[in-house]
Amino acid sequence: MSWHIVRGKQKYIILYEDYVDITKLVRELCFHRSLLSLINVGEPDQLASILNKELMGTYIYLSLKVKKTREVLSLLYDLGFSPLDLQVVKEESERAIFCAHCHTVFITDDHPHAVCEKCNITLSVTNHWSTFHHAFLGSFEFEGDSL
């Protein structure tokens, strides 16, 4: 798992799921003496009402499985949080891919090629990362033979 510490925020929240280990992140944030809340993500409705009360200057780490990350991200954007207010703690074994053809974001394992689960196109996974979609661009093969 990887993350970076963003300093100088009034408060930090870690949104987590039961089976994701967040101890290292918690330890590091405590080391920086930050005001910290841990929220176990359950029903998105409850989550919305909890997060709605948060003040400006709150910074959120999402330490969730990729699928849950997507649900929670769209909720956060709806609530007015921007990509600058949050960070996805990346899991090394799973990756979210944005399909260049149909815009579906889907989850695959760590492999240079992926087949879009919606339009079935084979994509080559680029290292172009979107801080908004929290996904890598899955693009087309640029070799003549594969066209």
Binding site: S82, P83, F98, A100, H103, T126, N127, H128, W129, S130, T131, F132, H133, L137
Partner: peptide, 17 residues
């Protein structure tokens, strides 16, 4: 390039490729 992919992204990240 794809506008849908680049939506919400910062100048530096857009130009990464």
């Amino acid at each position: 390039w794809s506008l849908a992919f680049n939506k919400g992204m910062a100048f530096m990240d857009i130009h990464r490729p």
